[in-house]
Amino acid sequence: MQAQEDVEPTVRIREVKKDRVNFVLGNVDLAFANSLRRVMMADIPTVAIDMVEIETNTTVLPDEFIAHRLGMIPLVSANCDEAIRYTRDCICLAGCSFCSMMLELKVACDDDNTMEVTSAHLEVVPFPEEEGSQDPGEELSKRGEWFGHPVGKNDPNVPPVLITKIRKGQELKIRCIAKKAAKEHAKFSPCSAISFEYDPYNKLRHTTWWYETNVEDEWPLSENAKEEEAPRDDEPFDFNAKPNKFYFEVETDGSLGPQEVVMKVRLRPACCS
């Protein structure tokens, strides 16, 4: 048990892409690795649509259906630690440009084809500033060009998110307020998936493989098995063994880059101890 104490953790990044990172974490506790996973999934704040004001909705979908779909659209949240405040920390009464983003969706169909309303129709609009608000915040200058815009709006290679389809004569007029939060709702998670694996050969017997006739055929080994030594057939079970190598693949929804997701982890759980 003590052997692990003085060993430093190791990290090896196997692959980085625009929306994902694959890495191997070593020399840490299973609980520690799992906490890392939990923090990346739930505790990293992003911006998402949180309030929806519907002026006109003559589509086939009810208001709350559309409101829910709007909330799930990932918005670019790069550097949102500095670029936007939490509404609860803001001095404003009911939302301002420092703690929220305003987006508008104004679509009407007047031709004979079915029209697709997508996240590309969402336009970021400036916040109507109330008179006399002399907020000295510098949040606005920290925002990137596309902060708060739906992910992929500036990239023709990214298909937009479909919200609804409308036909001739139908209209949608919506004003949305996007806020920064974490944990409150899954829509604030920057990750669309995190895969987490250890002990691909099941040497530790943390799981039991159910099988019909042959374990090897029915439970193909994962790619990560190449990283570890296969157990010999006559190897006795080592009940003192502990997992030591953890295989992660963090996939983001585009609101934050994978590097930002991983690097932001430390800031959060450390603040509580």
Partner: peptide, 19 residues
């Protein structure tokens, strides 16, 4: 990717209109 996951490609804007 860290700063702006979708680079600086030109705005698609309302390109999906009437598609």
């Amino acid at each position: 990717a860290g700063e702006d996951p979708y680079g600086t490609a030109g705005g698609a804007g309302t390109g999906a209109w009437g598609r």
